[in-house]
Nucleic acid binder design. Structure first.
Lengths: 155, 155
DNA sequence: ATATCATTGTTGCAAATGCAACAAATTAAT
DNA sequence: ATTAATTTGTTGCATTTGCAACAATGATAT
């Protein structure tokens, strides 16, 4: 039985990336759960992305947080209801869009969660050396650019 | 606006890996759909894994195909109903388990799908050079090993 | 001016997923 | 011997996701 046989799916780079992604997400949700941040990983990523990009429309946000438009809308509904963001009408290319920005409350909880998260992660053993991480980032970037040409993401 | 600000989630390696994984899965399902292989990506991966590892129990298979036990059982039910695998009782560490193996039909459709897939992928432009892919594989492996110590996957 | 197409966001529903609870079988403990 | 704990697989249900259809608005074409 040749476990390293490259012709099998389980040995492809696609499989290994999916596996790594699942570990990442699992670890993320476990940490968010344990730390009681009152935010899910997706909500945190959404607030963080808005704070980074400022006022963007929902579709652009969807592309950034890797969710489809309905899912993005639902996450924003929840954040809106809880007073972490406000949404307002604006235009993009002369088109009516809904943009959003953080409220004071939103900035506060994002900052608090970031701080707690940072402290927690600092106590974890480092999984990759800096050079390994740089290597990985570069390779992933190359892969993404290659795949982008082949896949229609339809967001 | 510092888009490359490393303190933001969207710039972390975790985010980038999830993004790459989503591209991989999207491309995979699109290809399987287009080629009309009468198998989903997950079903293909399952057949491929069984053909590689031989007779294994469901839980071990679940760990390999990165699904939880219920999902694995459901995939196997479907493959079983369609005659691509047979399941039988066996023991592992003196414990009763259900193992499975490919039927003639299962081997046939796996072989056919592999062949079509290989031809299709050969026609795609190469997204990574061999050395880039080797690099990526090594880094991903390191990351996975690091994460494994921190996450309980509960499969 | 009217019709057609494109973009953005929402709704609704089917499918997939995650998870807890359960059942069956075996091991370990007292 | 009885009880408790473990491992494996299934069931059921709540949540999430994916996707198609729709509504609203603006751009383009004839």
């Amino acid at each position: 039985m040749k476990i390293t046989d490259e012709t099998h799916y389980i040995n492809t780079i696609y499989y290994k990336i999916e596996q790594a992604a699942k570990y990442c997400r699992h670890l993320g949700t476990q940490i968010f759960d344990k730390l009681c941040l009152h935010l899910t990983l997706d909500e945190f990523a959404t607030l963080d992305t808005i704070s980074l990009y400022g006022e963007i429309c929902q579709r652009d946000l969807a592309k950034l947080i890797l969710k489809d438009r309905p899912s993005t809308g639902r996450i924003l509904n929840s954040l809106d209801e809880r007073g972490f963001i406000t949404r307002f009408a604006d235009t993009k290319n002369n088109r009516l869009v809904r943009k959003m920005k953080l409220t004071k409350e939103g900035s506060k909880i994002l900052e608090k969660a970031s701080k707690i998260l940072k402290e927690y992660l600092a106590d974890l053993p480092q999984v990759l050396t800096d050079s390994e991480r740089d290597n990985l980032e570069h390779s992933i970037q190359m892969l993404k650019q290659g795949l982008e040409k082949e896949v229609e993401m339809n967001i």
